[in-house]
Amino acid sequence: MSERTLSAPETCCSTLTGDPLSVEDAQVFARIFKAIADPTRLRLVSLVASHEGNEACVCDLIDPVGLGQPTVSHHLKILVDAGVLHREKRGIWSYYSLKAETLERITTFLSVS
């Protein structure tokens, strides 16, 4: 499945109480919401967001969620694929940060104004 980028012009215009979602936008939002609906993945997003500099190494996320590295990496991949997190490889470690544009689009969409 190809990843769809959420652009800034879309962010400002589509709200829950505005125009109905297109089929394509509904699929994009469903993928994002499905990714963050899992308690472990929601916790990972929170951990990354609250970490210093709003980014965290995968090695910093293993102990707080109480799961092994392969399981944590699997959850992080789902979040990256859904466009919630960004991954940057540095040496042997991967660092994760929030994709602000995706979170802004979710916030805008869920607003009632």
Score class of each variant (00 low, 15 high):
residue 73 S to P: 06
residue 106 I to G: 07
residue 80 V to M: 01
residue 92 I to S: 14
residue 78 I to S: 09
residue 93 W to Q: 15
residue 76 L to G: 03
residue 39 P to F: 12
residue 43 R to A: 12
residue 35 A to P: 05
residue 32 I to Y: 02
residue 2 S to A: 09
residue 72 V to N: 06
residue 73 S to W: 02
residue 85 L to M: 03
residue 1 M to D: 09
residue 99 K to W: 03
residue 90 R to E: 11
residue 105 R to C: 10
residue 33 F to N: 11
residue 26 A to Y: 02
residue 34 K to A: 14
residue 40 T to K: 08
residue 57 C to S: 15
residue 111 S to A: 13
residue 81 D to R: 09
residue 6 L to Q: 04
residue 87 R to G: 00
residue 107 T to M: 13
residue 45 V to H: 00
residue 76 L to A: 02
residue 58 V to L: 13
residue 11 T to I: 15
residue 46 S to D: 14
residue 59 C to I: 07
residue 61 L to I: 04
residue 95 Y to D: 04
residue 33 F to G: 07
residue 82 A to N: 08
residue 88 E to S: 11
residue 12 C to K: 07
residue 6 L to M: 12
residue 100 A to N: 06
residue 36 I to M: 12
residue 32 I to P: 06
residue 71 T to V: 08
residue 8 A to T: 12
residue 9 P to F: 08
residue 12 C to A: 11
residue 15 T to Y: 08
residue 17 T to V: 10
residue 27 Q to M: 08
residue 28 V to A: 04
residue 44 L to R: 03
residue 87 R to N: 02
residue 27 Q to G: 14
residue 89 K to N: 13
residue 46 S to Y: 08
residue 51 H to W: 07
residue 44 L to P: 00
residue 50 S to Y: 05
residue 29 F to Y: 15
residue 79 L to H: 01
residue 9 P to S: 11
residue 26 A to M: 05
residue 63 D to V: 12
residue 103 L to F: 14
residue 89 K to E: 13
residue 33 F to L: 15
residue 26 A to S: 10
residue 69 Q to C: 07
residue 9 P to T: 11
residue 19 D to M: 06
residue 4 R to W: 07
residue 58 V to S: 15
residue 42 L to C: 13
residue 87 R to F: 01
residue 92 I to F: 10
residue 30 A to D: 11
residue 80 V to W: 01
residue 64 P to D: 04
residue 90 R to Y: 08
residue 53 G to V: 04
residue 19 D to S: 12
residue 102 T to H: 03
residue 10 E to M: 10
residue 94 S to C: 11
residue 37 A to W: 05
residue 90 R to D: 11
residue 99 K to Y: 05
residue 48 V to S: 00
residue 17 T to H: 10
residue 112 V to M: 13
residue 2 S to T: 12
residue 105 R to F: 11
residue 93 W to C: 14
residue 28 V to N: 05
residue 103 L to S: 04
residue 101 E to Y: 02
